[in-house]
């Protein structure tokens, strides 16, 4: 188990165009840590810096307190599952998985045992003799995972490993990867742009944008208490209501005065209130009360187990997500309740 400390790591490929701005992060031993962000946010660059495949311009990386910033990639024991798997087509499945053990000088018997164990863990034990091109995408992904697991890495790096798989397989693999990491007490860093993947698998998530760390926390923290508009919007659909603080846990907004969680912002500060569509309740038009605004139903997107409704209110449009949705008629009037504990106040 390895604790990974990242201090002040920065990188730019062209002068003046930073990919990563100075960056601090600590990944605890045995943690399944996620880097989440849109493409081009610098998350893959950070991963490759940890693997030693990219040299940072500045900063220090420590594994268990030991500085490895300038260590050659082959000496880091930071096994990586590459995005396109990077399996060697001229070697068999067995030889691919055995490669790391061979370079480490393991004995014949150890190699056979470890490779078999790694292949069993990804349920490919009977494919050991197959050639790489004869495997399906999902099988290749699992070979790449087995190859990384076989070397018992100090740090497991996963670069969007599920992005080339179809939806069903992706779901199954999420559970598998988390199970294996936990079973073997691995410290793992997982890069993805898929918020579902991050929320469902991670111990902690670092949300990145434009080469800057936006927020770091547990899935619940970053989802329920985003620190800014970007994090709120990237982790899920959000209704943003702009307004200004009115003191006493109230804000003035185009929808009228709304109750919100208490905050210490001075009166008149411009703020945005974010509320997730699933937190809003749809009520009949005659149930007037606090934080309830009249709105007309204008559209719907049926999703099976749930339905996304679009409402038109005096202050703007509001999206509402409802599970086990009843029949509703487009054009009908309703009241929407915005519960104060579902509202997050953001600056700007």
């Amino acid at each position: 188990m390895t604790t990974v400390e990242i201090q002040g790591i920065a990188k730019s490929y062209q002068p003046g165009v930073p990919v990563l701005k100075p960056f601090d992060l600590t990944i605890e031993a045995g943690e399944l840590f996620f880097l989440l962000g849109p493409s081009g946010c610098g998350k893959s660059t950070l991963l490759r810096i940890l693997a030693g495949l990219v040299e940072p311009d500045s900063g220090v990386i420590r594994f268990n307190g030991e500085d490895i910033t300038r260590l050659a990639p082959e000496k880091r024991r930071a096994a990586m599952v590459f995005q396109n798997y990077a399996l060697w087509p001229h070697l068999s499945v067995f030889e691919n998985v055995a490669f790391g053990l061979r370079t480490a000088g393991a004995g014949k018997e150890t190699i056979r045992r470890e490779v078999t164990a790694a292949l069993e863990m990804v349920q490919l034990a009977d494919c050991a003799a197959r050639r790489i091109p004869s495997l399906s995408g999902g099988q290749q992904q699992r070979v790449a995972l087995a190859r990384a697991l076989a070397v018992n890495p100090a740090l497991l790096l996963l670069d969007e490993p599920l992005s080339n798989l179809d939806a069903r397989l992706r779901d199954a693999m999420r559970h598998e990867i988390r199970r294996i990491c936990k079973e073997r007490h691995l410290t793992a860093l997982y890069v993805t742009h898929d918020r579902q993947e991050a929320l469902s698998m991670a111990d902690r998530i670092a949300v990145m944008n434009g080469g800057i760390l936006q927020q770091c926390g547990t899935p619940e923290q970053v989802y329920n208490h985003p620190c800014n508009r970007f994090v709120a919007g990237f982790l899920g659909d959000t209704n943003f209501i702009s307004g200004e603080a009115a003191g006493n846990g109230k804000i003035r907004s185009p929808f009228g005065e709304l109750n919100v969680p208490a905050c210490d912002l001075p009166d008149g500060t411009t703020i945005a209130a974010a509320i997730r569509p699933e937190r809003i309740r749809i009520l009949p038009p005659d149930a007037a009360g606090m934080n309830r605004i009249p709105a007309r139903l204008t559209g719907r997107t049926f999703l099976g187990e749930s339905c996304e409704w679009q409402f038109e209110a005096a202050g703007g449009t509001v999206d509402v997500l409802e599970f086990a949705p009843p029949e509703r008629r487009i054009g009908d009037e309703f009241l929407l309740e915005l519960p104060p504990d579902g509202v997050v106040l953001l600056r700007g």
Binding site: G52, A72, H90, A104
Partner: peptide
């Protein structure tokens, strides 16, 4: 793809080993 060579380094192969075990067989 250069990534195949990167992968070999990632799994502990030095320059010479990458050349002899990965690069050369691939461009055989």
């Amino acid at each position: 793809p250069e990534e195949l060579e990167n992968a070999a380094r990632n799994f502990g192969a030095g320059s010479w080993r990458v050349l002899s075990r990965i690069t050369m067989p691939l461009i055989a």
